[in-house]
Design a protein around this nucleic acid. Sequence first.
DNA 1: AACTTTGTTCAAAAAAACTTGAACAAAATG
DNA 2: CATTTTGTTCAAGTTTTTTTGAACAAAGTT
Lengths: 192, 192
Amino acid sequence: MGHFLDLFRMKMPVKQSDTPILSAWETSMIDVFVRAAGLIGLPRSIGEIYGLLFCSPKALSFDELVERLQISKGSVSQGLKVLRQLGAVKLHYVPGSRRDHYLPELSMKRLVRGFIKDQFEPHLLSGAQRLDNIDAFIEEEGDEASRAHALNRLGTLRSWQQRTRKLIPIVMAVLGGAKFFDKEPTDEETII
Amino acid sequence: MGHFLDLFRMKMPVKQSDTPILSAWETSMIDVFVRAAGLIGLPRSIGEIYGLLFCSPKALSFDELVERLQISKGSVSQGLKVLRQLGAVKLHYVPGSRRDHYLPELSMKRLVRGFIKDQFEPHLLSGAQRLDNIDAFIEEEGDEASRAHALNRLGTLRSWQQRTRKLIPIVMAVLGGAKFFDKEPTDEETII
DNA sequence: AACTTTGTTCAAAAAAACTTGAACAAAATG
DNA sequence: CATTTTGTTCAAGTTTTTTTGAACAAAGTT
């Protein structure tokens, strides 16, 4: 059993600003985002940051994120960088404050689009190039039979790529009713 | 400059069976799969194993995978376990051999279904449970305004979950023309 | 039954990914 | 212009994930 003075040694978030620590519901909602982040290959810290913004009724500053999540400035800085790049958070100007404040993107469609554009499309693009290179290598193959087989498999791969491409606009359409490219964000509604 | 006897120390794949090493096109095609594996959060070795099977004109045995990919038995064993579980490879009986032989699943639709069933659905399921827990926590929230806001966000999250659920059958349909659940694999055609 | 072949398991080693914090840059303030 | 505030960068530390290989189990052979 622990000594009662252990209270003083306990590593426990210390209230420093006017928006301290996390409530139970916030903690578990953030947990949901941490898991979701893991699922799509993003680090925990990014899930935490987006999660806290998602919970918050108002835009949060860099410092508030550091304080309430109890993670380093470095993590927050890098995390926000990625989230900005994904379009998952937006800078929000707060009058009378020099600090950057952030709001979460709440439209699932835009979140998905950001993710696809940033993490998927590049691979699809470079992928197409790679398949062409393979095509060239196959020509160097010795006997006819293996060349034929190799080309066959390459064809399969190309069809997979193509189908993935075609899938994306469909997913976007189901998610929100507009086409994938060249759509400027509709401005503030409670479109989720 | 290296001593010429270094040749004897060089770690270099040694031909031991009748199907040695990898050709140029195989190497780069395997590379494509290694990248794809990374994209969906699977380790390199799994990409390599599936990739080599995908390249091969015939079923390959455990040993052939170890030899040609130059990776450990442990990696191959664990990798095949995961691939089997995903339905990405199938055991293939070869008369006159005691060894297990494997063939790759070549239907994109089945590959995607396996991945979703194994890696996504579980999270969606447990996710629903988690949201209900959050609901309970929110009730403990002090003031009315924050409770309202919290419930609002929870609602958003629920709608995201639901939309994800609805998306899956649509994706499967686009990929192959049949519904997601309760569909027995159509037997051998060259359906890709 | 002893031996061989085939494949799995799991603890330890290696590699990769993530986080931290101190040094730094940029811009606002006095 | 010196100082403070705010945020970024990056090398080093930490944690997590992946790979390895030796020991083991299961099943087939002689």
